[in-house]
Amino acid sequence: MSFQSEFGYTALPMRVRFGIDVLSQLQSHVAELGTERAIVVCTPEQRTLAESILAQLGDRGAGIFDRAEMHVPVDVADAALQFALDRGADGCVVVGGGSSVGLGKAIALRHQIPIIAIPTTYAGSEMTPVWGLTRDGHKQTGTSPSVLPALVLYDPGLTTTLPAGLSAASAMNAMAHAVEALYAPDASPIISLMAEEGIRAFAEALTRVVADPENIDHRTRALYGAWLCGASLGATTMSLHHKLCHAIGGSLNLPHAQTHAIVLPYSLAYNESSAPAAKAAVQRALRVDTSAAVALWELAQKLPIPHALEQIGMDGSDIDLVVEQALKNPYANPREVTEEGLRSLLQDALVGRRPTVSDRRTESAR
């Protein structure tokens, strides 16, 4: 494998604490940030955990906003911002997955307050400066250093209650971050190492997590993988997979993690032959010598997740809208993104058929 002799790498300014019971020092971590009044943000399902976190904050806690939703609707973000202003918040503790972290970022984007993220899924959003807001079925995304959490507390124990199906979908979502980082235009050897190791960690832990969800060793390995995959995404540029999933999720309001889990093998099949180094890294991580995309698809078939977009609510008549959204703004991708190619990809993903790997190559092959 040839070495990438020219590259750039910027370390993101954030801290990570990883381990069982890292939440025991939460109040001191909040104090270190200079935060006097922190709100806790979560989904309705995480209310009980949020209440325990608020209790740990003591007199630094300023209340709970428990209306986080997937894709961060603008009206919910507006309500959360007003809640933060009304409570005089100068900090935000987010607990949960991508929905909660995304809402915390929406608050930070406009209120400029620090975030402490406490992930309970493998979403990876906590490791990125990427924000997203959905208005009238259109999801807008951007990047800003102001939304990057100042501190992430990873406690594997918090993930043991995540159901097997959600664990599997969340993990495949995280692996998508790493796959795209491997063929990103701003990839680097450092990020590629992290991405490959993140995929490897999930490949080793995922079926074990599904079989034995409360096993802390398996959960620890999976959460380690989530950290690496999220960090890989945070340091690189998103390509076809994420643009396509944002179009599907924002336009059709389909579940985020499941959408990513279903689409991943097909987006990689589209790009695989135009990104040989990325293909090789995924093969090493999965310990296969055949198509990386097909290997991911075969892994997904072993998991208790939906395997076709039609199973989560997409219809064949939706393809036109998704293609239109995905083609709207140009973005870097190892293979040229065409309407014909997107339609073929989506038709395969719609019914969940075994992905067909294209043999096309581009001059930008990595």
Rank of each mutant, 00 (worst) to 15 (best):
H177V: 15
A292G: 15
F65G: 04
A106Q: 11
P119V: 10
T237W: 00
Y122P: 07
A164N: 05
I262S: 10
D186H: 03
L233K: 10
F18K: 07
L103C: 13
P156H: 04
A11M: 11
N333T: 04
L309Q: 08
A365C: 02
A326T: 15
G19A: 12
A278V: 06
S291R: 10
S99H: 11
F3N: 13
L252N: 01
C245Y: 02
A108E: 10
L12S: 05
R110C: 09
N271I: 00
L33E: 12
T43I: 12
G97M: 06
A55G: 15
L85T: 15
L233V: 03
V95N: 13
W227R: 06
L299F: 11
H246L: 01
H246T: 10
E45N: 14
E45Q: 15
H218F: 09
I305N: 12
S358L: 10
S2A: 14
A332G: 05
A11Y: 09
A184S: 14
A38R: 01
I64K: 05
I319G: 00
P276Y: 02
M238N: 10
R87N: 12
L182V: 06
V93A: 13
A89N: 14
Q112C: 04
F18R: 03
V130E: 04
S239P: 03
I20K: 12
V101E: 14
V322C: 04
V30H: 07
G234M: 07
G316T: 01
A150S: 10
K302S: 12
T236K: 02
A211Y: 06
M172H: 07
S273M: 08
I113N: 00
R15W: 02
G58F: 10
L206E: 14
P306G: 13
I312R: 05
R354L: 13
R37K: 14
V72H: 07
I199C: 09
E324R: 00
T338S: 14
R60C: 09
L233N: 02
H29K: 03
I107E: 11
V101T: 14
M238G: 15
W227V: 06
V72P: 04
D59V: 06
D217G: 09
V22S: 13
A261S: 13
P149S: 01
